[in-house]
Nucleic acid binder design. Sequence first.
RNA 1: GGCGCAUUCGUCUAGCGGCCAAGGACACCGCCCUCUCAAGGCGGAGACCACGGGUUCGAAUCCCGUAUGCGCUACCA
Length: 497
Amino acid sequence: MSDFRVRFAPSPTGEPHVGNIRTAIFDWLLAQRHGGDFIVRVEDTDRARAVDGAVEVIIEALKWLGLEWNEGPDIGGEYAPYKQSERLPLYAKYAERLIASGFAYKCYCSPERLIKVRKERSKQQNTTGYDRRCRNLTGEERNALELELRARGENPVIRFKMPLDGTTTIDDLVRGEVTFENRLVDDFVMLKSDGYPTYHLAHLVDDHEMRITHVLRGEEWLPSVPRHLQLYAALGWKPPQFAHLPIILAPDRSKLSKRHGATSLLEYREMGYLPHTMVNFLTLLGWSLDDKTELFSTDSLIANFSIERVSKAGAIFNTEKLDWMNGHYIREMSTNELADALLNFWQAYPPPEIPSLPSHELALEIVPLVQERMKTLRDAAPLVAFLFKERIEYEPDELIQRRMDVASTHMCLEAAHDGLTNLPAFNAESIEALLRGMVKEIDVKAGQLFGSLRVATTGQRVAPPLFESLEVLGRERSLALIADARDRLDVATAAHK
RNA sequence: GGCGCAUUCGUCUAGCGGCCAAGGACACCGCCCUCUCAAGGCGGAGACCACGGGUUCGAAUCCCGUAUGCGCUACCA
C-alpha cells in the first residue's frame, strides 16, 4: 500500500466552489507527488442541504480539470462505498461503542432548550454553548427522558464528552503547533436524531477506515481540531496529518461568495477559461515555488508541490491575473488545439455572433486571426463576427479616416477594388504586397487606406489584421463588401446635399 | 463576548538573523514595434516589511504586547 492516501471530501450542497476545488487540486497534487492515492468521498450527511445532481456536477468539475482519482463514488474501490449516506451503520456502531466506553452520551434536550441555553450562556464569560445537562444524568433520569422522547416518536442525539480540563495541541503541516483549551469546547453532537452522523464523526471514521494519511481542508476547520483529536484518542486511533489551508478571499477581503461574481468552477469554464489555467492559477493561490516561477505545466506542478510551501494568509482571487494567465496559455496552444477548443466551447455555449458551428477548416483559419487577441475563449466570436454576417452594419462616416474626405475615401475603395479584382493569388501575402504598393501610388497613408478597408469589410474599427481577414473572407465576398461600402458612401453624400 | 488564525508594493508573492536602502508577477504609466486592436521588447512608478516594545554587534526574518482583518462559536459542512 502507498504511504500517501489523500482524499477530497465535498458535500453535495451545490456548485463546486473554487475554494473547495483548490483543496481538491492540492489533494491531487500531493498524492501525485508521492505516488499515492487520490480518493473522492461524498459527505452527504446533511439531508436538509442536499442538492440533487450536485455529486455529478462536482465530478464533472474534477474531470474537466483533469484530476483523476483512484477510488470514488463513481468507480468504487477497496473501501467502498464512498458516499457517507451509504455507510450509516458504521457511524452508529462507533457512536454506540463510544457510549459503552464512557466517551459519549445520549442527549435528550429539545432544540428549543438548546437555543435558550445557548442564548443565556452567550452573555456569560463561560463559553460553551451547551450546558452538558445530559452528560450527568442519573440512570433513572435517563430512562425517564428516553421513554418520554420515544413516546413522541423522537430519538436522542449522541454527544461526545469533551475533557473538562487540559489542552489539545495539533502540529499542523502549515501552521505548526496550535493549542486549545478543552474546557472551552462543546460536547458536540456526533450522531443526529435522524440517525445521520455529523461531519465530526463521519469524516473521522471514514478517514480512519479508508486509511487516509493526510487531511487537507480549509482553515475554517482549525477550531474543530480539538474535537477531532480527542475523538481519535477516545477511539484509540492514530490521527492523520493535518494541513489547514488559507481561504480564498474576494477583493474586499471577505470570504468569496456569489455576490462577488463567479464562485463555481464551472462558471469559469463557461466564461472561457482553460482547465489548465484554473489548475495553475488556483494552485498559486496559497502556494508558491520561489521568487519567480508562475507558469507551471501540470507535470512541474506535481514535481514541485509541497505542503511546506503553502502560505498561511488568505489570498484574494485576482481576476486580472487570471485573465493574463489564460491569455498566455491560449497563445501557447497550437493552431489545431485552439481550433478544437474553440469548436468545443462554441458547441457547449453557442455565441450570438455565430449562427451555426463552423467547420474545422474554417476554425483553423480563424485561429490565427484571434489567438493573440484573446484572454478567454469567449473573446474569439466577437472578433470574427464579420465572417458570419449577411450584412455588416456601420455608419458610412466611419469609412472616412483621419485627414481624409469623401472623395479620397471613394478613390481608395475604388483602387482597392480594382487591384484586388485583378490580383492573381488571393492570399494575405499578395494582398499585403498589393495594398502597400497602392499606398505609394495613390499617395495616402497606410493607416488611411487600411482603415477604410477595415471598416468596409468588417464593419469594425477594431478587428483582426486586415490582410489575413480579407483572405479568410475570400475574394468574392471582399470585393462585394468594398463595392457596397463605396455605394453607401455615395448614397450618404448624396443625402447630405 | 470567547477561542483561534493571519498581517511584505493596489493584488498574488519571494524572503526562514547579516547577500534586502526588500526580488518577481499581474494591473498601471512611458517608449519601441505596428494597418486598428492585441501580442512582444525595453524602461518607470509603486512596500519606511500593520504599529509599539524588546532580544542581538546586526531583524522583514526571533520574543512580547496592541491594532486591524478573517474564521469558528448548529442535530451545516
